[in-house]
């Protein structure tokens, strides 16, 4: 066991897989010699050399296209897109190429790659460097989508993503890079498509992702301490595949459902979860499911404004308390 930052866990996760499999290669802007703009890939260039850790030009389409061509023909590339907002300039690969080649070719074409990216708000970077775009990817058949919230999950899910035979979009949260967590020694391999109950409870289920997980935890602690409401917090971790069994199981126990989403409201991932629960567990519910999201606006830069728009522990506490009528 050692304490590790989320940032260092990224490098350790990649290094674990590059050590295991010489076909794993890594490319992106400033990722090699510079160690990444978030310093999440420091040391990889020194450890694995310039043939496996490759600095690219500012060419997001070339980065993702090259990753795909390499994946189709036998490598296991990890590609970095520096900020997830930049998916918009290379979205063809994410929406049209990676996820459809296998289907269109009737199973001939493979695409085992990982795109990792800095997602989410909290850095006061404004509307084009702060978005949570996991829902852009969740809606595309053929992709897998994960978003870890702890250093341990970063390593384990990175390993699962690299070993997975499908294209996986791996969302790292920029505001979690500096956070720390206990990480076991040795190899860590997790499983895609598994949610985790990070805090058991009996009165309400709070489903959260990435940065919203620690916020939901903090809210749950306060709800218990200050209001006697015992919340179960579920870290979704993987939007596709989606572990609906864990979610439905939790709702069956608590009879109340809250989602805490950083993405803007329309078509956020929580809407799909609410819809599944409404379809399949309606009679388990003692009250309407409630979504706590960022409002449907572009993200502002100023700290005072950005802090208001993201779901906060305060907002979660207030919403749960009000909904449960306490």
């Amino acid at each position: 066991m050692a304490e590790l930052t989320y940032r260092d866990a990224v490098a350790r996760g990649i290094a674990q897989e590059m050590t295991r499999d010489p076909d794993v290669v890594f490319l992106g802007e400033d990722v090699g010699k510079a160690g990444g703009v978030f310093k999440a890939t420091v040391g990889l260039y020194e450890q694995f050399g310039p043939l496996r850790v490759r600095d690219t030009p500012i060419s997001e389409q070339a980065i993702l296209g090259a990753a795909m061509g390499a994946a189709m023909t036998g490598l296991k590339p990890i590609a970095e897109i520096m900020f997830s907002d930049f998916f918009a300039v290379c979205f063809d690969y994410i929406a049209n190429e990676f996820p459809k080649s296998r289907y269109m070719s009737n199973g001939q074409t493979k695409c085992p790659l990982v795109v990792r990216t800095g997602n989410g708000a909290g850095s006061r970077f404004g509307a084009q460097h702060s978005q949570s775009v996991e829902n852009w990817c969740m809606m595309i058949p053929g992709l897998k989508v994960v978003a870890p919230s702890t250093p341990r999950d970063v390593i384990g899910l990175m390993a699962a993503a690299v070993r997975d035979p499908d294209p996986v979009i791996f969302f790292e949260h920029k505001s979690l890079y500096a956070t720390k967590g206990e990480v076991p020694d040795g190899e860590i391999v997790d499983t895609l498509g598994t949610a985790k109950i990070v805090r058991p409870g009996k009165d309400a289920t709070i489903i959260a992702l990435a940065l919203m997980v620690p916020r939901a935890n903090e809210a749950a602690n306060r709800l218990k301490a200050e209001h006697g409401i015992d919340c179960e917090v579920v870290d979704v971790r993987s939007l596709v595949p989606l572990d609906t069994q864990t979610i439905l199981g939790s709702v069956a126990k608590t009879n109340r459902l809250f989602t805490v989403e950083e993405n803007p409201r329309l078509c956020g991932w929580g809407a799909e979860i609410v819809s599944i629960v409404a379809d399949e567990a309606f009679y388990d519910l003692d009250g309407p499911p409630v979504r706590i999201t960022t409002p449907h606006i572009p993200l502002p830069a100023a700290d005072i404004l950005e802090d208001i728009v993201l779901p906060t522990p305060d907002r979660i506490v207030e919403t749960v308390k009000r909904s449960l009528g306490s």
Binding site: Q61, G65, A66, M68, G69, A70, M72, D92, E97
Partner: peptide, 13 residues
């Protein structure tokens, strides 16, 4: 244009 970068990737392999 999509397949020009993809061909680059195959060549990289």
């Amino acid at each position: 244009g999509a397949h020009l970068p993809i061909a680059c990737g195959a060549a990289w392999r």
